[in-house]
Write a protein that binds this DNA or RNA. Structure first.
Lengths: 342, 342
DNA sequence: ACTGACATTGTAAACGTTTCAAATGTTCAT
DNA sequence: ATGAACATTTGAAACGTTTACAATGTCAGT
């Protein structure tokens, strides 16, 4: 019995027309209880399962939403997807998931697939939220969408994020307050992440506001966890830094690992700060100091925004959530200049 | 221009019939180049996008697969989903994602939603792979599916996993080899995870094979990261253990944190081992010793199996992958009995 | 010129729903 | 009895595809 039964069969089994069966499914209150029961019985008997594709073809809506994230391998996105899925479930929506692997080239294809599936709307984390063909496409086709984590300059797109520059600024300032004067940022490639770029700008601003020199940058590929070599010139030699501000928590954790590989202790020799607030950061030693954002709630909120847009709400809302510096142990006072390392 | 255009419009624009348009889409080689070009031009002009729901209604297949995991918040599942998504993308399949939040009650509903969507097949991580109504349902309706991480007793369902009991056995043995005699397992609730139960059995067997006493168990809720209180009686007092075997890496990381909160060092005072091999385990200090499974590849492989089943392959394959104990620093020699803690 | 083979295109019937308009049946005040 | 008002049900036309089958046009061989 491969669940092949159709509305027509249910109808004839129950001795009614397919219109009545449809009504039993969609608005049972408009049908007398006796009939409802008879039809329901026939459904059970035949193991009936409505063919959602028939319905979708007929109706305008599909009751599904598309999600695009850079990767599931970073808990910050995985957690947000968890939030999206949860909210979607409560709303009876189906989630179609795709990932771009941080490759801007793949974004358009992924979104196109989603659109072919006729999703009612999209939640996206894009490499670059400004001047992105994906956004142009969605605007042109008038498909509701919400950006998540992206913090676009333009005000005509819905988005949920923290203030990226500000979070990096605050983290950097916290380090400066601990006496750090020689800092560098470890950041994911700017082409892959506008957050990365915005955070670097915040980093630079904090430095210049404090009258410190040019912002040093160690740009690494996403998904990269081996930072021993990339960080070598930052951690050793005459230009060694005393603190690393990292554009994500994953990078921060990888950076802490690299520090240890270089024989440096955190925060004794080097302070390390991250941004994102992934859960595991609070469990490790030293506890990662991070600019925390409520990732899962942001996912839920994104879905709530999207629902509004799908329902026809016209002006896209943007929400910039406050981040919060966690009390981490990975940041400490700077080594005193008079006690040079090594 | 809200992408409303249909095949019929394209056809009339190009001066052909809809059958020809369909042919241009599905088998361009059977259509003369000149016609193909004319139709393609019309498509571009009208911004045509095939309505996949029309197609799905007509065809048997939907070219979509459903995925059910306990949660995205645990990297082990997130990574597997990443693998699934990647393989699906290469195959031009769409992924429908749901999660159960470790609640067996929700599994049936989630799968039902997926089936309503007429997915061609499913990849599932269930709370309990034996005697599960979800499996009965899928068997009854003859829907292809592959279990991921579950290691079912019955041989008529496809599955991909490691040998759960064995991985715990090996981990435990490694601890015993380091002189540990007083061990406990930290495990997620058995009702939520058959892996947890199987791993506990492996733990118990290793103990009894070594002639050590009864297996002690600290069962905790999934998603729980605060293990200070649950572990109190295991880490302090006369019955304090020298090693904790954890049923997952996430629990292991949380357990290490709890040890530190209790003022104990890892592995100095307590050794901690995990199972799963999540990436972050290799970055923290001390590096987590784990029974590693190739999570992402397992996701890809699951999709490959599923594809086979969808294509009509009749006998479901099961794959039990070898795990590998990582060289972690979280396990060390047992404290010598003559140097009691505190 | 006629035939058959072949290339190209078109016609029309599904697929399983939803829903509008119309039909049927029932009740009740007159 | 009649008809208005209402409750219940039905018939039939979409929705946008795919595809079997038929139709048309072309051309080589006779």
């Amino acid at each position: 019995m491969t669940s092949k039964s159709t509305m027509r069969e249910v109808a004839s089994k129950a001795g009614v027309s397919i219109a009545t069966v449809s009504r039993v499914i969609n608005s049972p209150d408009e049908v007398p209880t006796e009939t409802v029961e008879r039809v329901r019985a026939a459904m059970r008997y035949l193991n009936y399962r409505p063919n959602i594709n028939g319905r979708r073809l007929k109706m305008a809506q599909t009751r599904s939403v598309g999600v695009l994230v850079p990767t599931m391998a970073n808990p910050v996105f995985a957690t947000s997807v968890q939030g999206i899925e949860q909210a979607a479930h409560e709303d009876g929506l189906t989630v179609l998931l795709t990932s771009s692997n941080y490759d801007p080239q793949r974004e358009l294809g992924a979104v196109s697939t989603l659109l072919n599936n006729r999703v009612d709307g999209l939640i996206l984390t894009l490499a670059n939220a400004d001047d992105n063909p994906v956004i142009d496409l969605l605007k042109a086709e008038n498909i509701p969408f919400v950006l998540l984590f992206n913090q676009p300059a333009r005000k005509d797109v819905a988005s949920i994020s923290v203030d990226n520059a500000r979070s990096a600024y605050d983290m950097t300032q916290a380090m400066i307050a601990q006496g750090h004067r020689s800092l560098a940022m470890v950041a994911g490639r700017f082409e892959s992440s506008d957050r990365s770029k915005q955070r670097f700008e915040g980093f630079g601003k904090a430095l210049s506001d404090a009258g410190l020199g040019a912002a040093r940058l160690c740009q690494v590929g996403f998904g990269e966890t081996e930072l021993f070599t990339p960080l070598k010139s930052f951690l050793t030699g005459p230009d060694a830094v005393t603190g690393l501000v990292c554009s994500t928590d994953m990078l921060a954790i990888a950076a802490m690992s690299a520090c240890r590989e270089h024989g440096l202790s955190v925060p004794g020799d080097v302070s390390v700060g991250g941004i994102d607030g992934i859960a595991v950061g609070g469990l490790i030693s030293p506890k990662l100091c991070s600019a925390v954002q409520p990732t899962q709630e942001m996912g839920q909120q994104a879905l709530a925004f999207l629902r509004g847009l799908i329902r026809g709400q016209t002006n896209p809302q943007s929400l910039i959530l406050p981040h919060q510096l966690s009390t981490g142990e990975s940041i400490g006072p700077a080594r005193h200049p008079s006690s040079p390392r090594l």
